[in-house]
Computed example of a mutant assay.
Amino acid sequence: MDMIVDCVFEDERWQSFGLEPMAERAARAVLAALGLGEAGFAISLLACDDARIAGLNTEFRGKAKATNVLSWPSDERGAEEIGGLPDLPEPGDADDPEELGDIAIAYETCMAEAAGQGKPPQDHVMHLLIHGMLHLFGYDHIEDADAQLMEGLETRILAGMGISDPY
Rank of each mutant, 00 (worst) to 15 (best):
R77C: 01
E90H: 09
P86I: 06
A64L: 13
E98K: 08
A66K: 15
T67Y: 00
G62Y: 02
E90I: 05
K63F: 12
G101E: 14
E81A: 07
E81F: 01
D75W: 01
G62W: 01
D96I: 04
D102Q: 12
G92C: 03
S71M: 12
P73V: 09
R77Y: 05
E81T: 09
P97M: 06
E98I: 04
E81M: 06
K63W: 10
G92Y: 02
G78C: 12
E80I: 00
G101W: 08
D93V: 00
P91C: 13
D96E: 12
D96F: 12
P73C: 07
T67F: 01
E76W: 08
D95G: 15
I82D: 09
D75A: 13
G92T: 02
G62T: 03
E99I: 00
D75V: 09
E76P: 05
D75R: 07
A66Y: 07
S74G: 15
D87K: 15
D96R: 14
V69M: 11
K65I: 00
W72S: 03
P86N: 04
G101K: 14
A66P: 14
I103M: 09
E98V: 13
N68W: 10
P91N: 08
A66T: 15
K65M: 10
D93G: 04
E99H: 13
E76Q: 05
L70A: 00
P86H: 02
A66V: 09
D75E: 15
P89R: 15
N68A: 14
I103L: 15
P73R: 07
E90L: 06
P89D: 03
S71P: 12
P89E: 04
A79I: 09
G62R: 00
P73K: 05
E80N: 04
E90P: 04
E76L: 13
G101S: 10
G92F: 01
K65W: 00
P86S: 04
G78T: 13
G84P: 04
P86F: 05
G101I: 06
G83E: 07
